[in-house]
């Protein structure tokens, strides 16, 4: 217990040292080379109304930070859900069928490295017919297609890595295809799938900022861009920190879920 407490204090101390060093470097930068960069104190001053009243709604763009994060997370959740629902079966098909892999693997490899910024215009074109919803739908499309790949690839790897022993058990018991899939293949692939899910969530969160900046949909990303246009540079830094924090928390949450399935 004592060692645990000792460890906790050490970790906190190290964290404080890291934060102080970064703040020092930041102050130094804004005092010397980058005169336009707000100091940490100035940043706190502009960010204060957004932090102290995190759920306030003063106008379309002028809202508390957690409210803004909420808008972004809601869209990420939708796009991410689509990515998993579409990506997991594709991953299974790629892993199960050599023919399917031969036909579609090259296409996946070519589409995978395409930047979210490139997908967004295409997404908006695709949903032109939906009128005012086109921006939102385009953003959803972009999140879904960019976030899908880690899930697709990790699921495929997981399916190929199912031990032959488990499949033999299924063959000896003459399990039906459905039972084979849900009682043996899916549980055996689950650890790999969750690694894919975690990476996908990271990408979805990465894409939302770009999507909001370009579409102007209310959220952290568009807040950042607007504050740049309003010359409130302190809020750019504040937004970056917020995006980083939320991304970190999401990743931690997924890690916990992942490790639960790893031990099973």
């Amino acid at each position: 217990m004592n060692a645990k407490l000792h460890n906790f204090f050490l970790n906190t101390l190290c964290l404080a040292v890291g934060v102080l060093l970064s703040l020092g470097f930041w102050s130094l930068l804004s005092a010397t080379v980058a005169k336009d960069l707000p100091t940490p104190a100035a940043t706190w001053e502009v960010a204060k109304p957004y932090i102290l009243e995190p759920f306030a709604k003063r106008g379309e763009q002028d809202q508390g930070i957690l409210r803004l994060v909420g808008y972004s997370l809601a869209l990420v959740a939708k796009g991410y859900a689509i990515a998993l629902i579409v990506g997991t079966p594709i991953g299974f098909l790629l892993g199960l069928s050599k023919g399917f892999a031969r036909v579609f693997d090259p296409i996946v490899q070519v589409l995978r490295p395409v930047s979210p910024l490139a997908w967004l215009p295409l997404g908006m074109v695709l949903f032109l017919g939906t009128g005012r919803q086109a921006l939102e739908n385009g953003a959803l499309f972009t999140i879904a297609i960019c976030a899908m790949w880690p899930t697709v690839l990790n699921t495929a790897v997981g399916v190929r890595a199912i031990p032959q022993d488990y499949l033999n058990v299924g063959r000896v018991l003459k399990l039906s295809r459905v039972k084979m899939l849900f009682k043996i293949m899916v549980p055996a692939t689950l650890p790999y799938m969750f690694t894919g899910f975690r990476l996908s969530l990271g990408i979805a969160w990465l894409v939302i900022v770009a999507a909001e900046m370009l579409t102007g949909r209310t959220g952290v990303g568009s807040f950042l861009w607007n504050e740049y246009n309003n010359a409130n540079y302190g809020n750019i830094i504040f937004s970056i920190l917020t995006i980083g924090f939320i991304g970190f928390i999401l990743d931690r949450l997924m890690s916990v879920a992942e490790s639960r399935f790893k031990t099973a």
Partner: peptide
């Protein structure tokens, strides 16, 4: 083909860990 009319006991027991 394989089938449950032949019970197989494998060297490693091959239990499904989940």
């Amino acid at each position: 083909s394989a089938g449950p009319d032949r019970g197989v006991v494998f060297q490693s027991p091959c239990l499904l860990p989940w």
